[in-house]
Design a protein around this nucleic acid. Structure first.
Lengths: 214, 214
DNA sequence: ATAAAAATAGGTATTTATACCTATTTTTTG
DNA sequence: CAAAAAATAGGTATAAATACCTATTTTTAT
């Protein structure tokens, strides 16, 4: 194994960068081709030499990590990206993955995991830290949340809510169910009241939260 | 260990029921207290003797598994429920968990997993089959889906879409951004066009799909 | 530097949703 | 069986969204 994995780092914390230098320089199969403290530096640097793997933080001055990921994924599809950040929020993870990042690990992660993650994404595979996978599952199916709090919708109301979320107007729903438009409008009002929202946008979001839609 | 885990079964396939009988009768720490082929039988049976763990299928004549789960979770909070079904769709999994089920395994699952699942939910813990956990993760972060297909919204449009999904009216958004309501209305139109939907409900759903919201 | 795209704003009209009522019939439930 | 809840429908307004235009200024990209 002669050919080393070329690694670039984008992070605005000097300490993180020097820490990574220390770790990676001791790895015979890796070399650092550049480290950048903000988005502009990163884009300029990457234009000159493309790494195999880019370690990318989310919070940075100027462009944020997810914007950068999007640009790089578009312009340099051969560069694998590994999010390396403090954010353990599921929303951030989803977001980065969607923007084209290949892996996601936390800065609190141990050295071995870091190296494993780099090698994995370099092979073209996805790497999500185990703890975060757990978190995603828990977040996705936040089981049995307080039943008391969940609003009691009647079967008809649920049905209508599904139609509303399916883009139908009251008139269209009425035609489909062979009832008056006024009936549907009244159901709409009950739904707004019961779900404590003020308009269709709120209804759709609640419907999704309640698992009635999608 | 004298006290056996009392198990009830709700499934409309006689074969499944007899298979389960065969497996569970050979387990010294378990006993079957009843097996039911539909919702009414189940509710009647459970009213007489409450099992520790209920194995519950989703498709059944009359009430569906998720409706039954909801009822049982409400009336008999001490009964642990384990979904045992053919549905490996993430939507179903989420839905059952939300309705109060404690675990979810497939009928294609091996005997050892079945027993482990029963023992786990009996202890009050959650059990999701490993393969399904994987599936949930993949489903949640369906990474790098064809970028070509994803609509190019401008930064402003994304911002406005977020506000729309946050229940704000055009007027409210206009006030917040110090622009005319007409401007926001025009952005709304562009969003409808670009996202290929016809109203707010569609906008909200797309926004969630695109990861802009929630 | 120039072209393209984005953000801005207005005119005008129609459709849809929201709000607050009353009221009857049907279904559920104790 | 009686009471409660759900589903039905109408009256009347107003607010908001949708549709289809034109047009100017500002920003981005080649």
């Amino acid at each position: 194994m002669d050919i080393k994995i070329k690694i670039a780092i984008a992070d605005d914390h000097p300490l993180v960068i020097s820490g990574l230098h220390h770790i990676l320089n001791n790895c015979p199969d890796m070399e650092i081709t550049g480290s950048y403290a903000n988005g502009d530096e990163l884009l300029a640097g990457i234009a000159k030499v493309q790494p195999d793997v880019l370690l990318l933080d989310i919070q940075m001055p100027g462009q944020t990590g997810d914007e950068l990921a999007e640009i790089i994924c578009e312009k340099y599809p051969d560069v694998r990206m590994l999010a390396l950040t403090n954010q353990d929020n599921v929303f951030y993870i989803k977001n980065m993955l969607r923007k084209g990042v290949d892996g996601y690990i936390l800065k609190t992660t141990g050295e071995e995991i870091l190296l494993e993650a780099i090698r994995t994404v370099n092979k073209g595979e996805q790497y999500i830290e185990t703890g975060l996978q757990e978190k995603i599952i828990q977040d996705t199916l936040q089981a049995k949340k307080d039943l008391s709090a969940d609003p009691v919708l009647s079967r008809r109301e649920k049905e209508i809510l599904r139609y509303i979320a399916a883009d139908l107007t009251s008139q269209e729903i009425a035609d489909k169910l062979f009832v008056s438009k006024r009936t549907i409008d009244n159901h709409r009002m009950s739904l707004l009241l019961k779900l404590g929202v003020k308009n269709v946008a709120g209804l759709v979001k609640k419907g999704i939260q309640l698992g009635l839609i999608e």
